[in-house]
Nucleic acid binder design. Structure first.
Lengths: 154, 154
DNA sequence: TTTACTGCAAAATGTTTGCATAAGG
DNA sequence: CCTTATGCAAACATTTTGCAGTAAA
């Protein structure tokens, strides 16, 4: 489940995005992978990094996340709560949001993607080029302490 | 296109939501209807109301929008930009987001809703009750000055 | 060596809170 | 009346900015 990314690989990706691979950027990027699916704010990334990197500054984390988002190394996550949240780029474009616990969970579903792509091919969007389609399920966990699981019935 | 809501009707809805229908709440609610589809922030609502209601305070607008959202009179709109945005409740759960102009446009599509509802009935969501499904199309307007139009081809 | 990035601190924004006064039911 | 909402100002939180010093390429 927890995937490992070596710093060398992360460094490479930062360089490929056209940015200098500073130590701060590498550890921010690493933290985003470790927190993948948790959609942290700049503050949360900063708090996670601080113990090990005492000299890092919050301003740098803000700037770093901004530049990552601009270069599409990470994506900004939609939020109703009104703070900027980030996630390491990945394939899951869909989110499940629990309005009780405020959790935002990633949700990947190939079949859903395919369905939507084919749906929007049949729609004629004049003057708009679709870059991505994402679905947000809002609702409530029946048992806040348990996980949500999704299986196909059919 | 621009739909009219009399203050009496708005007042009625506020009361039905279990809130006292103060003048401030009525004009905030009215502004949200007038700005429907524009997804304003508290600040934007405040600026709109100020000329006609010089005594209204920004704090009240914040509190009002909060209580409206809590009572589900209005909905909070998802944003990547990290500010709280609101909209009068309506049937369109889908948004089209232009990453160049930062516009968020409402998009209603019965057929899409039906497709998704039936899709998720076939998925077995353990421990989660879906309240609403919304689709976000991210992309770019080809001509920033023109409107986006959507037609069915098939 | 040159350019771009960092850290720091201050400023700018955005949002919430507490409380005395005012208004709704 | 009694309760709840308002306005105001202060507190708090979040994000951006400017700049001198530092590190990457």
């Amino acid at each position: 489940m927890e995937q490992h990314y070596s710093r060398d690989i992360l460094k490479q990706q930062i360089i490929e995005a056209g940015l200098k691979a500073t130590h701060q950027r590498i550890v921010v990027y690493e933290a985003l992978h470790e927190l993948h699916g948790h959609h942290p704010t700049a503050e949360e990334v900063f708090q996670r990094l601080r113990p090990v990197n005492p000299s890092i500054s919050l301003g740098t984390v803000y700037k770093t996340l901004d530049s990552f988002a601009e270069r599409e190394l990470v994506k900004r996550v939609l939020s109703e709560e009104g703070g900027k949240r980030y996630d390491a780029n990945n394939l899951a474009h869909n989110h499940i949001y629990c309005s009780n616990t405020k959790e935002i969970m990633d949700y990947q579903d190939e079949e859903l993607e395919a369905l939507l792509v084919s749906f929007f091919q049949k729609r004629n969007m004049e003057n708009f080029e679709i870059k991505s389609i994402s679905v947000q399920l809002t609702g409530t966990k029946k048992d806040p302490d348990k996980q949500i699981s999704i299986t196909r019935t059919e």
